[in-house]
Every structure is written in structure tokens, then in C-alpha cells.
Computed example of a mutant assay.
Amino acid sequence: GQRFKIVLKNSGQGPAEFESTPLRVEKVLSPGVTTFVVIHPLRPGHYPFFDDFNPQLPEGGILAK
């Protein structure tokens, strides 16, 4: 029931993206960039996220209890 911040760091050589349709957030990061996204209070559930620029990476998720 609280907002929270996720710090994102792209330590790779190319662009990266933090994207989640259920969370309604999308953030593109250039190589070497550190930034953040603020997530609104969530209802209990699983909220997946992925990197559109690097589809070989596994999908991640946030579990809200």
C-alpha cells in the first residue's frame, strides 16, 4: 500500500529498457546510466517486467503482498 522507488543501472555496452505493461512504466537507459522509477501502491499480485532491447534476458517480476 505504499509507493516505492526502483533504482535501475545499465552496466552493459548497449541500450537497455525496463518495461512493464501492468505497472504502466517504461524507461530506456543508455550504457552506463543509473536512474530510477517510482511505482505507485500495488494491489497484491505478480507484476512482470522485461527488457525489449535484450529479449535473451529472462523476464523479472515484482511480487506485491
Rank of each mutant, 00 (worst) to 15 (best):
G1D: 10
G1F: 11
G1W: 02
G1L: 13
G1P: 09
G1H: 09
Q2R: 05
Q2W: 03
Q2K: 04
Q2P: 05
Q2Y: 05
R3D: 13
F4R: 07
K5Y: 04
I6M: 10
I6W: 01
V7Q: 12
V7E: 13
V7R: 11
L8T: 02
L8C: 06
K9I: 06
K9L: 04
N10I: 03
N10F: 04
N10Y: 00
S11L: 10
S11V: 09
S11I: 06
G12L: 06
G12S: 15
G12C: 12
G12Q: 12
Q13S: 15
Q13A: 14
Q13H: 13
Q13N: 14
G14W: 04
G14E: 10
G14M: 05
G14R: 06
G14A: 13
G14N: 10
P15N: 15
P15Y: 15
A16W: 03
E17W: 06
E17M: 14
E17Q: 14
F18Y: 07
E19D: 08
E19K: 01
E19F: 01
S20H: 05
S20F: 05
T21W: 11
T21E: 15
P22Q: 07
P22A: 14
P22W: 07
P22C: 13
P22Y: 08
P22H: 10
L23V: 10
R24S: 14
V25Y: 00
V25N: 06
V25W: 05
V25L: 15
K27C: 06
K27I: 00
K27F: 00
V28T: 15
V28P: 05
V28C: 09
L29T: 08
L29K: 04
L29G: 06
S30W: 02
S30T: 08
S30F: 09
S30V: 12
P31Y: 03
G32R: 01
G32I: 03
G32A: 00
V33M: 08
V33P: 04
V33N: 04
T34Y: 00
T35A: 10
T35V: 04
F36Q: 14
F36W: 09
F36L: 08
V37G: 05
V37C: 04
V38K: 07
V38A: 03
I39N: 03
I39A: 00
I39W: 01
I39S: 12
H40A: 14
H40L: 12
H40E: 13
H40T: 11
R43N: 15
R43P: 06
P44D: 02
G45P: 02
H46I: 15
P48D: 08
P48V: 03
P48C: 04
F49P: 07
F49T: 08
F50P: 00
D51Y: 02
D51S: 03
D51L: 08
D52H: 07
D52T: 14
D52C: 06
D52N: 14
F53A: 12
F53S: 08
F53N: 06
F53W: 02
N54M: 09
P55F: 08
P55L: 10
Q56H: 12
Q56V: 14
Q56T: 13
Q56P: 08
L57N: 09
L57R: 10
P58Y: 00
P58L: 04
E59G: 07
G60E: 02
G60C: 07
G60M: 02
G60N: 02
G60F: 03
I62G: 03
I62S: 00
I62R: 02
L63E: 11
L63F: 07
L63R: 13
L63T: 14
L63A: 12
A64Y: 03
K65W: 07
K65Y: 06
K65H: 11
